[in-house]
Each structure stands twice: as C-alpha cells, then as structure tokens.
Design a protein around this nucleic acid. Structure first.
Length: 419
DNA sequence: TCTGGGGTCCTTCAGCTC
DNA sequence: TCTGGAGCTGAAGGACCC
C-alpha cells in the first residue's frame, strides 16, 4: 500500500510488453483496509469511506478511491480528512478481519510459488521463475492471480511485473487501482529515467528535498550524477544504493522468510500527560504487551528501548542492553521505567510513550538464565500462566493490579506500587 | 495541517579494548 | 608507562516504509 503516487511513463507504440526474464511480481491490494471493511458493508460501495480511529488524534488508515478524490490520504489526521470530505462514512479499523483476509491471500500466493516475500498485510513479492512451465508467462500468472483474488476475496489488486523487486514495486504503484504493468527487462532504464526522484523506494520527503536542492529532479538526473557526489550528500550506503537503483541495478532476491528484529508497542495519549504515575502505568501496560507478543512469537530480546514524544512533537529514545535475553514482562518494565526515570523529567507534557524489545533471537537459541534473586517459580512462570489464561479467556483477563480499573474512581489503578 | 502504530536501516558519536 | 589508531559495541537520532 504505497503512499506515493506517480503517473506511468508512456511506452508509445511499442506493442505488448515482452515479459521474458521478468519473474518478479509485486502484488499490492487496492485500498486494502477500506476494501476489506466494505465486504460486510456492500451498501457503501462506490461511496467515500474513511477507515480510521475515532479518537481526536487518530489518522487515516485507508480510504476508498471515492474519498481520495477529495484529497483524503493515508496517514492524514482524521480531523483534516473529515474537513476535506465531510460526507464520508467513517469506519473503525477491524484488524482481525484484515489479518484473516491477508492470510487467505498469502495462501493463494503460496499455490503459485514457494518464493513469496510478504512486505505487509496487503502486499508481497513473488518470484515465479519456477512456475513458468506449470502456469505460463509471468503476465499470464499475474492475470490469473488478480482474477483469483477478486473472485475469492472480493477485492482488487494491482500487480507489477519486472526483472527486479524495485522495478516490480514501482510498476504496481503505477498500475493502481486494479491494474497490471509489465516493465520489459530491456526497457527498465528508459522506464525509470522518466520518473521523478521521489518515485525511488527509500526517497522520502527529506531526501527528495535534498536532491531537489542539488538540482536533481528525475531518476535520469540521479543516474547521471557521479556516485561520489550522491555519497557526499546522502552518505555512502544511500548514495551508492540510489545510483544503482537509478540504473535499474537491484540484486536483491525474493526472500520467503524474514525474521523480526524488534517487537514493541507505543501509545499516543488522548491528551498530553504530565503525571509520572500515569506514565509509569502506561509503560507497564506497554511492557506487558511487548513481552506477551515476544513470547507468543517465541522470541527473546536483550535491548529494551523507550520512546518519549513531548507535546511539541520532539521525540527522544533511550535504550539499555541487558546482560541476558529476556521475555519477562516485569523485567522489561523495570528497565523501561529505569530509563524513563533517568530522564529526570519534571512534569514535562508527554504525548506518547513506547516500549520496544530489540536484538531478538529465538527463545531456544538464547536460554533464559535463572536469576539468583528470583523465586524458584519466577516471573517467567507467572507470565506463561497469564499467556495461557489469555489464550483461553481472551487478552486482558489477567493484568497487573495497577492496571485494573479502580472501583472507587472508575479509572485505572491509582497509587499502587509498580515496582 | 498538526501529525498513529508497527517496523527497518543508516549514520554518528562515545567508550572500551587491544 | 603513555599515546594514538583501529575496530567493536552500544546508544541515540533520523529517515523511511506500510
């Protein structure tokens, strides 16, 4: 679900594209969250619909093309989206439904090739080199795939077909909505050179601005700039990478399994908070959530980091690397709290806090060491028991006492000890 | 206009060891 | 014993992606 939009370069009268050697497909669902939400609301088809949270600070997760015509876009503040398109129907996201549909779509991909690299819930790369004899040309496979997903899931997708991942991804963006673009291997460079620099994967607003200041506006400009100049401006890695991509060089293969490197959770408050006790409770809740997700994924991590965003939107991070790996809620919270307290904030107004566990490895590869200060059946066992209860009765049935609603006030636990 | 939540990757800098 | 450089690691921040 790319957020950037460009116009497809004109191929002129070159005839049907030659897809020889174009075995990389990038498949991207069209307005995925909106399309998925409309499956149960067919009465809203053809109307402007925005998917997003109800809280004052939420942003647009997705919008139908009818809403986009009014200027509504992903990641836009909801308040602005509502102003741009007041007649739009707003629907709260339903992440369980999206995950279920995504799983079904990935299963469809798996019937075509084993070489599927999911990028997110709604898009993936497929390497179809091994499926050509069985299913036909890459273009034919892409067409079949689009038909199958439309029939089985009731949503449309766009597909880019090319010889490299980067070009296939660009092509699917240009094909939207409900389209298919093939970029023949021999036409890769001419295809790229017509595009603006912002079309390149990895060039965001800041880098685009930087390149514009250097007088570089198109991919052709980029390609004809000495790589050393780009490296001086953007750093060694980014400079080299941009130069390579501008010439269509992208050796990255489609990688079926990608291992997570960090797991975390953050939360933006409905209103800025300056009460340290409330922030500690939020850190506890986020540590709990992060640890539970790590255990569920069978991972442990060694570095705990926190993120704090202030009322003026400045953001800081602090991290601490432990001597051993952990997936224990209490230990992650203790580290997060220590990092927060070390900031020495005197009632600063905080907008967001986050907790993240980094340096992940599989639990089996990093046995959790028993600690001398832990009781025989330590906090790990308690966490496991909570996991089992949550699996049986639903998430949140067992929580730290400080996160239980306070019966006297109706709010979350008050001045309980969080240590 | 007023900016979510979940991630990855890169750069820079400081501290440590050899 | 002191010093400087190389290499590594951790920490922090920024940019980017969906």
């Amino acid at each position: 679900m790319s957020r950037r939009q460009f116009t497809a370069p004109d191929r002129g009268d070159l005839g049907p594209p030659d897809d020889t050697g174009c075995t990389v497909l990038h498949v991207d669902m069209d307005a995925f969250y909106a399309s998925a939400s409309l499956i149960s609301r067919p009465d809203l088809r053809g109307k402007p619909v925005i998917i997003g949270g109800a809280s004052g600070r939420s942003v647009v997760l997705s919008a139908t093309y009818e809403a986009r015509a009014f200027g509504v876009a992903s990641a836009m503040p909801m308040a602005r989206a509502r102003r741009l398109c007041p007649q739009a129907v707003v629907i709260e996201p339903d992440h369980r439904r999206y995950a279920a549909i995504s799983e079904a779509i990935m299963a469809t991909f798996a019937t075509i090739t084993e070489s599927v690299e999911p990028l997110s819930l709604d898009e993936a790369f497929l390497d179809v080199a091994g499926a050509l004899r069985r299913l036909g040309s890459p273009t034919r496979i892409a067409e079949q795939l689009r038909d199958t997903i439309a029939d089985e899931q009731g949503i449309t997708c766009s597909v880019g077909v090319a010889s490299t991942k980067f070009v296939a991804k660009l092509a699917s963006t240009l094909a939207k909505p409900d389209g298919l673009i093939v970029v023949p291997r021999d036409e890769t460079v001419s295809f790229l050179h017509q595009l603006p620099v912002g079309a390149i994967w990895g060039v965001g607003d800041k880098t685009e601005e930087h390149l514009h200041r250097l007088g570089l506006r198109t991919v052709a400009d980029l390609a004809h700039t000495p790589v050393e100049t780009l490296q001086r401006a953007l750093g060694d890695v980014a400079g080299q990478s941009l130069h390579d991509l501008a010439w269509g060089r992208d050796p990255r293969a489609v990688v079926p399994q990608r291992r997570e490197k960090s797991i975390g959770a953050d939360e933006t408050f409905a209103h800025d908070i300056d009460d340290p006790a409330r922030i500690h409770r939020e850190l506890l809740r986020l540590s709990d959530r992060t640890a539970a997700r790590a255990r569920s994924a069978g991972m442990t991590g060694r570095t705990v980091s926190i993120k704090v965003r202030f009322a003026d939107f400045t953001t800081i991070t602090r991290s601490k690397t432990l001597r051993h790996h952990t997936d224990v809620s209490r230990e992650i919270f203790a580290t997060a709290r220590e990092l927060y307290d070390r900031l020495g904030l005197q009632r600063a107004r905080v907008r967001l806090v986050g907790v993240r566990l980094e340096g992940l490895v599989r639990s089996a590869e990093a046995p959790i060491q028993g600690r001398l200060d832990e009781p025989e059946h330590g906090w790990r066992d308690a966490d496991r028991a909570v996991d089992r209860a949550s699996a049986r009765f639903g998430a949140g049935v067992v929580r730290p006492a400080s996160l239980m609603p306070d019966p006297t006030s109706g709010s979350l636990g008050g001045q309980r000890d969080l240590s």
